[in-house]
Computed example of a mutant assay.
Amino acid sequence: MASLNVYSVLVVLFLTCRAIMATKENDQIIKENNCETTVGLPCVLEAFTSIFNTRSISNKCCGKLVVLGKVCHSALVKRTFENPLFKGLNPATIIAKSIQTWNNCLALIDSPSPSA
Rank of each mutant, 00 (worst) to 15 (best):
105 C>I: 12
39 V>I: 15
21 M>W: 11
114 P>N: 14
69 G>W: 12
109 I>M: 12
94 I>G: 02
72 C>V: 02
14 F>W: 09
113 S>A: 13
80 T>Y: 06
7 Y>D: 10
61 C>A: 03
16 T>N: 12
19 A>H: 10
2 A>S: 03
52 F>S: 01
116 A>N: 14
76 L>V: 04
25 E>A: 04
40 G>N: 12
9 V>Q: 14
10 L>E: 12
55 R>I: 03
35 C>A: 04
27 D>L: 06
104 N>D: 11
41 L>M: 07
2 A>T: 01
94 I>N: 01
16 T>S: 15
72 C>I: 02
106 L>E: 08
110 D>C: 07
52 F>R: 08
39 V>E: 07
66 V>A: 06
96 A>P: 00
82 E>P: 00
48 F>V: 08
19 A>E: 10
110 D>R: 14
42 P>W: 11
43 C>L: 13
17 C>V: 14
99 I>S: 05
83 N>E: 07
10 L>M: 11
82 E>I: 09
98 S>L: 03
37 T>Q: 15
3 S>Q: 10
22 A>G: 09
44 V>S: 11
55 R>N: 13
73 H>N: 11
116 A>V: 12
79 R>G: 05
108 L>G: 05
86 F>K: 01
66 V>Y: 06
98 S>V: 03
39 V>S: 07
80 T>K: 10
114 P>I: 15
29 I>N: 05
87 K>N: 10
86 F>M: 06
20 I>L: 15
101 T>V: 14
73 H>F: 15
89 L>S: 04
84 P>G: 05
58 S>W: 11
106 L>Y: 07
8 S>C: 12
42 P>R: 10
59 N>R: 10
61 C>P: 06
38 T>W: 08
73 H>A: 10
33 N>R: 14
35 C>S: 03
75 A>Y: 04
9 V>C: 11
111 S>N: 14
72 C>T: 00
45 L>E: 15
12 V>M: 10
6 V>L: 09
106 L>C: 02
73 H>G: 05
20 I>P: 04
76 L>T: 00
80 T>N: 08
17 C>N: 08
90 N>M: 01
52 F>Y: 13
6 V>T: 07
109 I>D: 05
106 L>W: 03
24 K>W: 08
32 E>C: 01
70 K>P: 00
38 T>S: 15
87 K>C: 08
103 N>Y: 01
21 M>Q: 14
106 L>P: 00
73 H>V: 04
20 I>Y: 08
110 D>E: 15
100 Q>S: 07
48 F>D: 09
43 C>R: 13
17 C>P: 00
100 Q>R: 09
53 N>V: 08
107 A>D: 06
13 L>N: 11
1 M>Q: 02
52 F>I: 01
72 C>L: 04
50 S>F: 08
42 P>T: 14
107 A>G: 05
83 N>G: 01
51 I>H: 02
28 Q>V: 02
40 G>A: 13
66 V>C: 05
104 N>Y: 09
